[in-house]
Amino acid sequence: MKIAILALQGAFAEHEQMLRLLGVETTLIREHWEDVSGLIIPGGESTAMMRIMKDEGLFEPLRQAILDGLPVLGTCAGLIMLDRNHLNVMDITARRNAYGRQLGSFNTEADFEGIGRVPMTFIRAPYIEKAGPEVEILARIDGKSVAARQRNMLVTAFHPELTNDTRIHKLFLSMVARQNTCSEVAQLHV
């Protein structure tokens, strides 16, 4: 299993470190990629990442790969990039800078569906303003949705890569493992 991490701008090294801790092979991608089982879109500035992504010709290939079922984890800016107004693969609308400027950044702990209490770090973070019927909301803070899943896509408005808690990454890896098993089964049926 090899996981690609989008390395255009932002905190990609932190995800790399987290996956290494879990003994998973990673590759940083900037132009093209091959042979990966999953993708992480890290935190950073979504406007910067979108701009570079378009200029590098990554926008369409990435969008298509995700629509074709490539498991993807988007954290903070990564959540924004997957929403209706950006890559338009996930049926959510993100509200950018939803907690204001840096003075509004905070740490907290909240329940995460299927995992339990999870430490959460929000840095100039978004939240999910609207979500379609297919989207499963996994965590809420003060009634606002801050984590969700839809088919092969998992997003968090906070930064699991900045804490010592590996459970969100493990959840993503289990989605990757399941997807791989499914495609093997599908191949067998061909």
Partner: peptide
């Protein structure tokens, strides 16, 4: 302190940027 950590982490989000 919490604040110092959060402030260092904002800088981490700026990495690889201009």
């Amino acid at each position: 302190e919490d604040r110092t950590t959060l402030n260092r982490q904002l800088a981490q989000m700026l990495k690889g940027g201009v």
